[in-house]
Design a binder for these strands. Structure first.
Lengths: 196, 196
DNA sequence: ATAGAAAACGGACCATAGTCCGTTTAGTAT
DNA sequence: ATACTAAACGGACTATGGTCCGTTTTCTAT
């Protein structure tokens, strides 16, 4: 339990643990029933039988809550590109890994789109989402290997090209198929990193 | 006056005109003095000596107000890439026009960043900002000329790569110089559209 | 078991975008 | 000039994210 408490952190008080549990359960229920967009912090506090202050002390903000809710699937995706089999994981050429990364990201976003949009909204500095930082770093490394002159900035461009809001809206609002997005991503990376 | 009223629209009433004038002046003053981010609709209504309902009937939303405030500079930039001299305007190769477009956009965003961020926030579907649609279309045409397989989707990727929030945060929060952004954009377009 | 300190609690409170609707006002037809 | 109508007005009201701070609870040292 308490996966991300810094070592030697003071014991979490039992009431705090109980409320965290209540809050997570309530939040998952609400998201399952009404969708992430419709979740309000008041409703959550109420459903979890907890004061509103407690909700905010626990998660900091609505975005923080959404990130917490995401963390399981996110970790899984991260494990995929960091330790999984090629071409997503290590062992393939940077170009192929980037193609796979983008594709994976597109489908990941389409599965967790509401949560991701909700996590990214409201929070100024979408980039400060830890998962985003990790993705950025991953792309940066691959781009450097592939000989891009300024991999940090290029990774940022690609990060925004894979913005959850963009992907979700392309598919759900503008009617672009995920396949078409993935194909275009492949074209982008292929042309960017040396021909064919 | 009244630049964008559909032909044959019923006369704008004199009180409406007067209030629009008041609101625009007040808004410009507030932005000049405190910045776009700090502008609240209440403060605007108050300063313009107008009811809050009037503000919203006029502009629809905070984002709508920001777009109105932007429209002059935006039109100028648009004129640049649609009718201006090459390489930004017609007459140069698509690749060069795209490079120039991105550079122009970067500097445009840095000048009008607050307004753009404010216009893009709050409004779900940042893409529905008319100016964004036009930019997207412009890039789409150039990408098609340059032989990109799916210019519509690729233009969307590039649109997000030039996201105002991204550019402003890169420069002001993450300390990337505009030059470095522009160079990376050039690298991106150059590699994307056939070598050197 | 008890006292004291640190942490957690909860809900009233604030700020702000956006809505609603009864009232006022500007044009128009007579 | 008058009456009429449609448009515009304004501000009280709602929804919601987020803050504050006096009160309660848990843990620990004795």
């Amino acid at each position: 339990m308490r996966p991300d408490v810094p070592l030697g952190a003071p014991h979490e008080r039992s009431d705090a643990a109980r409320n965290r549990e209540r809050l997570l359960n309530a939040a998952r229920d609400l998201v399952a029933e009404f969708g992430a967009e419709a979740l309000t912090m008041d409703a959550l506090a109420c459903k979890a039988k907890v004061g509103k202050g407690t909700v905010f002390r626990r998660f900091g903000s609505r975005a923080g809550l959404m990130m917490t809710l995401l963390s399981d699937s996110e970790s899984e995706f991260q494990a995929g590109f960091m330790f999984g089999p090629p071409p997503l994981g290590p062992g393939a050429a940077p170009k192929d890994r980037l193609v796979a990364f983008g594709e994976g990201r597109i489908y990941f976003v389409l599965e967790n789109g509401e949560l991701l949009k909700a996590a990214g909204a409201a929070t100024r500095n979408r980039f400060d989402v830890p998962a985003t930082k990790l993705s950025h770093r991953h792309m940066e490394v691959l781009l450097r290997e592939a000989g891009i002159a300024d991999p940090w900035v290029m990774a940022m461009s690609l990060t925004y090209a894979l913005d959850p809001e963009r992907i979700v809206d392309d598919v759900r609002v503008r009617g672009i198929s995920p396949t078409r997005l993935a194909d275009s991503w492949r074209e982008l990376i292929t042309r960017l990193l040396g021909s064919v």
